[in-house]
Design a protein around this nucleic acid. Sequence first.
DNA 1: GCAAAAGTGTTCGCAGTACACCCATGT
DNA 2: ACATGGGTGTACTGCGAACACTTTTGC
Lengths: 239, 239
Amino acid sequence: MERYDPHAFPPFAVTVDLAVLTVRGDTLQVLLVERGQDPYRGDWALPGGFLLPDESAESAARRELAEETGLSPATAAGLHLEQLRTYSDPGRDPRMRVVSVAFTALVPDPPEPRGGGDAARARWVPAAGTGPLAFDHVRILADAVERVAAKFEYTCVATAFCPPEFTLGELQQVYETVWGVALDRPNFRRKVLATPGFVEAVEGGPRRTGGRGKPAALHRAGPARSLHPPLLRPEGRHP
Amino acid sequence: MERYDPHAFPPFAVTVDLAVLTVRGDTLQVLLVERGQDPYRGDWALPGGFLLPDESAESAARRELAEETGLSPATAAGLHLEQLRTYSDPGRDPRMRVVSVAFTALVPDPPEPRGGGDAARARWVPAAGTGPLAFDHVRILADAVERVAAKFEYTCVATAFCPPEFTLGELQQVYETVWGVALDRPNFRRKVLATPGFVEAVEGGPRRTGGRGKPAALHRAGPARSLHPPLLRPEGRHP
DNA sequence: GCAAAAGTGTTCGCAGTACACCCATGT
DNA sequence: ACATGGGTGTACTGCGAACACTTTTGC
């Protein structure tokens, strides 16, 4: 930094890109928007945009998240948002040098697709096997999915995919979807309940989920953020 | 991104900052440079610098790493370098908007301090309890140290702190230093050897380390990058 | 009654823990 | 001889895997 004239630095554009993930039914889905401008006009891409002059990447990401999901800023403020990594290869944007700070957002099921804000169109698609995406977004998406799957092992973020109150069956469904494996229900249940602060029981009547079967007890996300000992994927796969 | 004129984006300066860590004896140390220019002239800071117009953040980080450590580019190319996260708060640089991509580098002990390249002076200092640093570098350093400690649990990066050939005692010393705890030697040994690809035995004569004691067998870092099951810190502490 | 989902109990094996103990070298 | 660090063996314990079983609902 010492040998540069502060007024002669090479200028870059800085953007944020968001991998907004949700679990719907038994598939992990990602929010994509259709690009309305060149380059990649008409292609699908991760939502994102330029940093404004006076905001941090985190602020920009949360602003974009609220715009693209169509949620109120108050609701969007509570969503789980986490920096993934920064992509800076020259040539990743054909127009100019763009450095992009990528984020992963985990949202509970029902935020309706809605082509909110400015994006031409927006939709949820399965995160595995999206077609080609604009820029290097296929790689960003792959990194995001792998990171989330890895984080499930030693953190409590899985509850970010669940509504405020959820059953242990729903939480297990989230794990099984993200990991793509079946888990033993009794063991999963014990493991979760044995971790202090992972989930908290909700007093009051249980509810039925799909109607059939015994009504399940409801739980809330607890204050814990990490899982000790971790909950490891059956066939330990770490790339 | 759609509503912006490509030629009217807000410009930012982009830098890389490096937390270059090593284990010397029984302390984790970080490489600091003395700033030769305002702002923070005369203060200590993490090494780093601006991105050149045609390089990625990774390239810039490796270039700076070679310059600051004074190692040959060929040697520096083999060092463990990993993106940490990006710091973008407005006001983190008093002059202008600077977005910094931070990296963590792990180097084996003996790369001599050397105030290489352009930095006025450079020195190794204990990573815990450095005085105040320039910019937000105290926070970057803290994030780097915590990340490394966490990675030791489920990856094989610890060998990056060791020379090409090392003893299991040295590897254990690295773990104990980074975690700040004592480990049981027989159990550590079995755990490491039971993980395929973590370390490989070197044929040929054993060597003595400090002279005293039984000569230890030498090992090389193996091809494995992850640890399954993980090697957990005794008092599971994850912030 | 039957299917489906929640919830409980129990057995088994293995991995991590905590040691005791032997080996090889320098002083 | 003894201190120092390397290396091996072993008994105990607790968690996770696997699976049987009971409970409560909708149809």
